[in-house]
């Protein structure tokens, strides 16, 4: 019965969307806002990458909300899984390394991944990329050792400090603008953070700083989330093993 109703619901929804799709103008998107932003962003924000201008300047509060969602999800997972992991016995080490080649390969890759990650973050206001993408690459750089070496663990303390501080820095930059009687979260140009020339690395005021905070936060969040799940799955398998022994 439940399957039938689910099928009916999905079928109805698909039909509805198809009907709506035929009504919508195809190939000529309405650009009430987009074209204005493309016109205005070079001199209002000063970043060569229009997407970065939208993400951090025009809709900066959305980005703040999105990174809070990530933080919330990580905190929730940490609370649930951390709670369960602490109930189980602490794990004994199982030697389950994945061999010489993958270990050496990872050691080679980590610096490269770090460079690429930070490059994408620092050039986020000039080229496609930015905090979210660069942050994910940073997270992978720190998580790779956990995948190949079973005794490698990420330090949760450092991760939680980085994620807390990076988020706070993002907000504090926004509040810094308010300190100068500007609206909250406006990337502004002041002293060291000049507007610069469009397309140069040192341009767009505080916007690159916002991107750096965003990238670090996303990276720490994701690495922490993956590490929590990895820790949990290790303790879980061991916990079930010891339960089997007692039975």
């Amino acid at each position: 019965m439940r399957n039938v109703s689910g099928l009916l619901f999905s079928g109805g929804l698909a039909f509805l969307l198809l009907v709506i799709a035929t009504h919508l103008p195809f190939g000529q998107p309405l650009m009430l806002v987009g074209s204005d932003i493309i016109q205005a962003s070079p001199h209002e924000v000063g970043s060569a990458n229009v997407v970065a201008a939208i993400l951090l300047a025009y809709r900066g509060i959305d980005t703040l909300g999105e990174l809070s969602i990530l933080f919330t999800a990580a905190a929730g997972v940490g609370l649930i899984l951390g709670h369960r992991a602490s109930q189980n016995v602490p794990p004994t080490q199982v030697k389950n390394n994945s061999g010489f080649i993958s270990q050496k390969g990872i050691e080679l890759m980590i610096p490269l991944l770090l460079v690429v990650g930070f490059y994408i973050i620092f050039y986020g206001h000039l080229t496609p990329g930015g905090g979210f993408q660069g942050g994910v690459i940073l997270a992978i750089a720190f998580f790779l050792p956990v995948l190949v070496q079973s005794d490698a663990r990420l330090d949760h303390n450092i991760i939680s400090i980085i994620e807390g501080l990076a988020g706070a820095v993002f907000i504090l930059i926004g509040l810094w603008a308010m300190f100068y009687e500007r609206p909250f979260l406006q990337p502004f140009f002041n002293g060291l953070f000049a507007k610069g020339t469009l397309g140069e690395l040192w341009s767009a005021g505080t916007l690159p700083l916002l991107y750096l905070a965003l990238g670090l936060k996303v990276g720490a969040e994701l690495a922490g989330l993956l590490a929590t799940i990895a820790d949990f799955s290790i303790t879980e398998t061991q916990g079930s093993l010891s339960e089997d022994d007692t039975q």
């Binding site: 806002v33 509060i61 909250f184």
Partner: peptide, 11 residues
């Protein structure tokens, strides 16, 4: 307007 970007461009 958040960030001082007037509607409808900003939030």
């Amino acid at each position: 307007a958040i960030g001082g970007y007037q509607p409808p461009l900003g939030v």
